[in-house]
Design a protein around this nucleic acid. Structure first.
Length: 643
RNA sequence: GGGGUAGUAGUUAAGUUGGUUAUAACGCCGGCCUGUCACGCCGGAGGCCGCGGGUUCGAGUCCCGUCUACCCCGCCA
C-alpha cells in the first residue's frame, strides 16, 4: 500500500491555506513550479489547479505548540530520519516534477509574500514523495509568457498548466453549468441531436464522413442542429436546448474554429420578444455566475437595446456594431442627389442613375458614405494613407476620396478640392459635422464594399484613438439586438438567394412583397451583438407551407427540388408544425469576450491552427490505403499513400 | 484561391555596407550558499541561422523556390 495517496490523503489544494490554518498538519499534491535551494534550506513553489503554496525543507526545524494532526495519523509529528530523508530527496527534485508533501502549516512571520493568495503561510515538510519526474518543459510555465503560439500549441498540455488557461477553462465550466441551470429552470429540455447526418447544401461547407456500410455514400458532420431542433418543435417538446459541438469546413480566423460549441435553443408558440427575454435573462445569469459584470446596473430594465439591420448598416457599416464608441458613418447619397453631384464627377455618375431610375433608393446598387477621422486622432498624412492601404484588403475596394478640412471649412489634400462646389462642400461639412483638422473619408460604390471599408476604418481609428482596446472588453459591455434584415440577397445575376436560410419568416407586413418585390422583404431574424462581436443569432421560423412555397419560388427552387433538398423537413412542417423560433449563441466567443482573450484559441482546450491543424497530435493525417479501401475511397493527391 | 508579417541555442530575441570561432537574457547541467520567493555567486554544455537551390573567394545577411505559423480578404453565423 502506497504511503501517499492511499494512506496520506490530500487535505487541501495549493490555493486553500491561510493564516488561520497555522499549526495544522496537511497533505498537498502538485507540481514543483519553482525550486530555490539555498544550501541547507530548500523552498518549492508547489502548484496545482487552485494555486501555489510555498513548501519548505528545513532539517533544523522542529514544530512548536499544538499541532492539529491529520485524521488517522498518530505517528510522531517530526521524526528526524524522515525529515532528513525528505530534505535529501528535495535536493534531487527539479521543476515540474510531481510530488506529494506532508507537513505543518506555519505563519511566515516577517516573510509574508503579499502578492500570493497563500502568502501568509508556508508548509514545513516532514515527508516527501516523488510521484513522477519530468523533462525540462519546452516552454516556460509562467503566467505571462511570450513564447510563440506555434510552440505553445505543440506542447498544449504544458501550456494548459499555466494559470491563465486554467482560469479560462474554469470559466467555461461555470458557463456550462449556469447555462444548464438557467435553461432547465426556464422549462427547456436538454435533448441531443446527431453529429453525423445527411449532407444538405447551402450555408457552410460540411466535413464529409465516408460510410463503410453504404459504399460510395457520405455523412456530413452537423454544421448546426438547425433542422433537428425544428423537428423537436414539430414533435411537441415545446422548449429545447443543447450545448452542442458544431462543425464547419471553412477557412479559420481569430474568432473561427472548425469545431466550436454553441448554446442552441428552440421554442414553440413564441415571438421574437420571447426569445429576447429568455436570452437577456441568460446573459444576466451568465455574467453574474462568472462575476464578469453587473448587467443589472448597465441594463436596469433587464433588456438590451435593439437596432434594425438597416440602421446598423447605415450608421456603422455592418450588422455587428461596436457601441463602445461613437464615430458613426454618414450617409451622403441624398445630399449628393440634392446637389446634383456637387461638381464631383464620380458622384454625378451615381446621382444620374438615381435620377433616371436605374437605381432605387430603397435598395440602392451604389451609395456614397463618409467617415470622419477627427483631428483629435492626431494622425499624420502618412498614417492616414497607411490606414487606407489596410483597406485595400477588401476585394474590389477602389480607395477613399479624402479631404482635410481647414479652419475656414476649405478642403485640402483632396482629389475633390478643385472641383467641388462651395455649396456642396459647406453642406457636406455640416452634414458630417466636420471641424478644422478633421479628415473626411468618402467612399462610393457598391454598398457591401463601401460599408466594409468604412466600418473597418471606423474600428481602426477607434483603436488608434484608444476609444476601444486592441482586444478585450476594456471594462465595457455593450449589448445590442440587430433585427429584421432582408430575407433575400440578390445573387448578381438577376435572381435571389436566401440571406441566411430559407426557413426564416418574413415580417408580417412584408408577406405580400415576397412575390412583388423580394429585395425589400425583411424577416424575423436577429443577431445578438456584444462589443462588436456577433455572439449569436436566430430567427422565427417559417411554419406556413404557403409562404414557404412562395419563398422557394423566389429562390428559384422548384417543388421537386425543394423536396429533394429539404424533404423530411418540409414533410414535417406540413404534419402539424407549431409557430416556433430559436437562437444559437457561440459559447466560445462568449468565453473569449468574458475572459478578455484575444483569440478563440485561448478559450478552447485543444484548438486548431489557421490551417485547421492540431499541432500537438498532428491531425489531420494520412491513413493506410487499406483503411481507405474499407470506406471505398481513393485520393487524387499525388503523394498520397495509395497513389 | 489572394495579400501581408515572421522563422537564428530548450525559450525570447540581437546580429551593422556580405568578412575571423554566430551574441545576450532566461532555462538547463555542475559547484558554493539556512529565509528565499524572478534567490544569489562561480563555472559549463547547448546551433542544419526553417528547408532546397543560386550569386560570390566568402552568405545568418543578397536572389529564386519551398515549408511552417500568424493576421487579413474571399469564404463563413
Amino acid at each position: 500500500m502506497a504511503r501517499f495517496i492511499d494512506e496520506l490523503r490530500r487535505t487541501h489544494y495549493c490555493g486553500d491555506l491561510r493564516a488561520a490554518d497555522a499549526g495544522r498538519e496537511v497533505v498537498l499534491y502538485g507540481w514543483v513550479a519553482r525550486r530555490r535551494d539555498l544550501g541547507g534550506l530548500i523552498f518549492f513553489d508547489l502548484r496545482d489547479r487552485d494555486g501555489i503554496t510555498q513548501v519548505v525543507f528545513d532539517p533544523g526545524f522542529s514544530p512548536e505548540g499544538d499541532i492539529q494532526r491529520l485524521v488517522g495519523q498518530d505517528d510522531e509529528v517530526w521524526p528526524e530520519d524522515r525529515v532528513k530523508a525528505a530534505y535529501s530527496l528535495a535536493e534531487q527534485v527539479r521543476r515540474e516534477w510531481v510530488v506529494g508533501v506532508r507537513g505543518v502549516v506555519r505563519h511566515r512571520g516577517s516573510n509574508v509574500k503579499k502578492d500570493l493568495a497563500t502568502g501568509e503561510i508556508e508548509v514545513m515538510v516532514s515527508e516527501l514523495e516523488v510521484f513522477n519526474q519530468a523533462e525540462t518543459p519546452a516552454i516556460p510555465l509562467d503566467d505571462e509568457i511570450d513564447s510563440d503560439e506555434e510552440t505553445r500549441l505543440r506542447f498544449r498540455y504544458l501550456d494548459l498548466r499555466r494559470a491563465p488557461l486554467q482560469k479560462t477553462l474554469r470559466l467555461r465550466h461555470k458557463l456550462n453549468q449556469a447555462t444548464r441551470n438557467y435553461l432547465s429552470n426556464a422549462g427547456a429540455l436538454e435533448l441531443e441531436t446527431p453529429i453525423i447526418c445527411k449532407y444538405t447544401p447551402g450555408g457552410a461547407r460540411n466535413f464529409l464522413v465516408p460510410s463503410r456500410l453504404s459504399p460510395g455514400k457520405f455523412y456530413a458532420l452537423a454544421e448546426s442542429p438547425q433542422l433537428f431542433k425544428q423537428l423537436f418543435m414539430v414533435s411537441g417538446f415545446d422548449k429545447y436546448f443543447q450545448i452542442v459541438k458544431c462543425f464547419r469546413d471553412e477557412d479559420l480566423r481569430l474568432d473561427r474554429q472548425p469545431e466550436f460549441t454553441q448554446i442552441d435553443i428552440e421554442m414553440s408558440f413564441i415571438n421574437q420578444d420571447d426569445v429576447f427575454r429568455l436570452l437577456e435573462g441568460l446573459m444576466f445569469t451568465l455574467f453574474e455566475a462568472t462575476g464578469a459584470a453587473d448587467l443589472k446596473a448597465l441594463y436596469p430594465d433587464g433588456t438590451f437595446p435593439r437596432m434594425s439591420f438597416h440602421e446598423s448598416e447605415r450608421r456603422f457599416g455592418n450588422d455587428k456594431p461596436d457601441l463602445r464608441f461613437g464615430l458613426e458613418l454618414s450617409e451622403l447619397t441624398d445630399l449628393a442627389i440634392e446637389h446634383d453631384g456637387g461638381g464631383i464627377p464620380l458622384m454625378k455618375a451615381i446621382v444620374d442613375k438615381f435620377a433616371d431610375g436605374t437605381y432605387r433608393k430603397e435598395v440602392p446598387e451604389e451609395i456614397i458614405k463618409a467617415f470622419v477621422i477627427p483631428a483629435d486622432a492626431k494622425l499624420s498624412r502618412k498614417q492616414v494613407e497607411d490606414l487606407e492601404k489596410g483597406l485595400k484588403e477588401i476585394k474590389g475596394f477602389p480607395g477613399l476620396g479624402r479631404a482635410k478640412v481647414g479652419d475656414d471649412g476649405s478642403w485640402s489634400q483632396s482629389p475633390f478640392a478643385k472641383v467641388v462646389t462651395d455649396d456642396f462642400r459647406v453642406a457636406l461639412n455640416a452634414h458630417v459635422g466636420a471641424k478644422a483638422g478633421d479628415v473626411i473619408c468618402i467612399s462610393m460604390g457598391k454598398p457591401a464594399i463601401v460599408n466594409a471599408a468604412l466600418s473597418k476604418l471606423r474600428l481602426e481609428v477607434g483603436k488608434r484613438m484608444e476609444l476601444i482596446p486592441q482586444f478585450g472588453h476594456g471594462g465595457e459591455w455593450k449589448f445590442l439586438w440587430v433585427v429584421n434584415p432582408p430575407l433575400f440577397e440578390e445573387d448578381g445575376e438577376g435572381g435571389f438567394v436566401a440571406a441566411h436560410h430559407a426557413f426564416t419568416r418574413p415580417i408580417d407586413d412584408h408577406i405580400e412583397l415576397v412575390e412583388s418585390d423580394p429585395a425589400r422583404v425583411l424577416c424575423y431574424r436577429y443577431d445578438l451583438v456584444l462589443n462588436g462581436v456577433e455572439l449569436g443569432g436566430g430567427s422565427i421560423r417559417l411554419h406556413d407551407p404557403d409562404v414557404q412555397q412562395k419563398v422557394f419560388r423566389v429562390l428559384g427552387i422548384e417543388d421537386d427540388k425543394a423536396k429533394e433538398l429539404f424533404g423530411f423537413l418540409l414533410d414535417a412542417l406540413r404534419s402539424g408544425a407549431p409557430p416556433h423560433g430559436g437562437i444559437a449563441i457561440g459559447m466560445d466567443r462568449l468565453a473569449m469576450l468574458l475572459s478578455g482573450a484575444p483569440t478563440l484559441r485561448d478559450v478552447i482546450p485543444f484548438p486548431k491552427t489557421n490551417q485547421g491543424i492540431d499541432l500537438m497530435s498532428g491531425a489531420p493525417d494520412r491513413v493506410e490505403p487499406s483503411q481507405l479501401g474499407e470506406v471505398f475511397i481513393t485520393t487524387t493527391v499525388e503523394d498520397a499513400p495509395d497513389a
